[in-house]
Structures are given as C-alpha cells and as structure tokens.
Design a protein around this nucleic acid. Structure first.
Length: 243
DNA sequence: AACTTTAGCAACCGCTCCGAA
DNA sequence: GTTCGGAGCGGTTGCTAAAGT
C-alpha cells in the first residue's frame, strides 16, 4: 500500500498567492494559531495544500519577518556559518532572526556565491580557488579575466578592511565548537557553535535550533547584552534581564 | 522599440526525520 | 519493531522585472 499524498492535489490551487488568500491565512492563524498544517487550508477556506500554506506563512506572512537587503555584517556571518554548516539552510537561518531559510538560500545562490567567486574563494569549500594552466580554476568556472576583476575590486576596497572577507578555513581554530561573531565589533565573546548548528551562550540556557523556535529580535539583543556583561564580575547572569 | 539574456525570488517537489499508534 | 502521517528541509523550477543588445 502506497503512502497517501500529503494532500489531495485535485482541485487545489497552485502558483502565486493572491492578497485574499494571504489575508485568509493571516486571519486564520492569528485567530486560531497552528495546530495542524493539514487542517489549516480547510478551516481557513483555502484551496491550497497544507504544505503550501506552511511555506507561505513561514516565508512571507509571518509578522516577525525582517525583509530587505542583507547588510555587510549579515553577509559576513552568513559566509562564516556556511563554511561551518554547509547547505543546512534552516540551521543557518536560525542564526538570523526574521530571515527565512528560503531567503538565505536564495541570497546565497544569487549573490554571495558570485561575490565569493569574484574574491577568488570557492563558495563550496571556502578555500582559495586554484588556477589551472588553461586559465580556468579547477573548481569552478572563474577565468583569468574574472580574476582581474577581483584585483580591481580589491583595489577599490582597501578602505573597507573592516568588511574584508577572510576565507573561514584560514581562521578556523583547533576547537570547532568555538566561534567568535564579531561582525559588529561588539559581539566578541565566545559562543558555542556545535556542528548541529545549535548556538548557546556559555553558562546560560539560551539556545535555539530552528526558525520557529527562535524567540525574536528581543532575544537576540538579550543575548548580545548577556555576552556584553559576561566579562563584568559584578553582574550576575541570573539577575540579568530582571527589573 | 523589440527582442534576448540575466538575476532575483516565490513556490513546488521529493525526500528524510520523528513521534504516535 | 513496524507502519503511518505530519512537519521540515534542501534542491530545483518557473515567473517576472531589469539589463543588455
């Protein structure tokens, strides 16, 4: 006996969502919450499969989504995380509150891959691209001409050393569990970053593992503040955040 | 102005994981 | 231990707008 499909596809609408559909989904979830995605379209009066509703909500309709371009700092952190976690987009996304795995994946594939190649870094291995004799690198399709563009770009970027991308492989330490996220110049304490992508602060129970479980920007600021005060012996973590 | 190519993004597909029965 | 169903994930596709010719 074959497995039942996640939904009866006959008669279901596909393709881009309309504003009315969006509104129905938002109204339903805000009023009822999410118990079972399979039931959501039925109860919300949508001719969509539950999977489609889930995707639409997570990637587009959630109220806590942060939309807009990625900042330089976000890109740096993304590159760093990708070098450690690979294409585990949901794990990576859990470090970017308000960003979705889909958004991060798209941004990586359309922009950062290109950016790294222009910098002579292989976006898969994060190692410097080796040049073969015919003028093409051995890993991707970068040509000598592209390399010249890199040199030009670097020449123009000398004043932006702060944002210079260092291939993570060159800065990896012996202990892979330790990552220092110092993109903003303040967040420089040690964070435990496991191979599973879980992130936690030493001595604290703050930990998240997926987009849906990521608290909010407040939690991120809280984490940042905890990290800031951790060096201060006069401040107890237990008392932090209490009024 | 018309056509073609490219880039960016939303959405879909198929698979795996995990918990419940 | 096995099966089933729901949720989640990553790869891929397809549409649209912008850029180039």
């Amino acid at each position: 006996m074959g497995r039942k499909p996640c939904c009866d596809k006959v008669g279901l609408k596909r393709g881009p969502w309309t504003m009315e559909e969006d509104q129905k989904l938002i109204d339903f979830i805000l009023n009822n919450g999410i118990q079972c995605w399979r039931l959501v379209p039925k109860l919300a009066g949508l001719m969509r499969c539950g999977k489609s509703c889930r995707l639409r909500w997570i990637n587009y309709l959630r109220p806590d989504l942060k939309r807009g371009d990625f900042s330089e700092d976000e890109e740096d952190i993304l590159i760093e995380l990708h070098s450690r976690l690979g294409n585990r987009w949901s794990k990576i996304a859990s470090h970017f509150p308000g960003r979705t795995d889909n958004e991060i994946k798209n941004h990586w594939n359309t922009r950062i891959k290109k950016k790294l190649k222009l910098q002579g870094i292989d976006p898969i291995t994060h190692e410097p691209i080796k040049q073969s004799e015919d003028g093409h690198d051995s890993v991707s399709n970068i040509t000598v001409d592209d390399e010249n563009k890199v040199l030009d770009a670097n020449a123009n970027a000398t004043s932006q050393d702060k944002n210079k991308i260092v291939p993570p492989s060159q800065e990896k330490e012996e202990n892979n569990n330790e990552a220092i996220l110092n993109a903003d110049g303040r967040l420089h304490e040690t964070i435990n970053l496991t191979m599973d992508g879980e992130c936690s602060v030493e001595g604290s129970s703050l930990c998240w593992d997926a987009i849906d479980s990521f608290p909010s920007w407040e939690a991120m600021y809280y984490l940042e503040d905890v990290l800031f005060f951790m060096n201060d012996p006069l401040v107890s973590i237990d008392s932090f955040g209490k009024d």
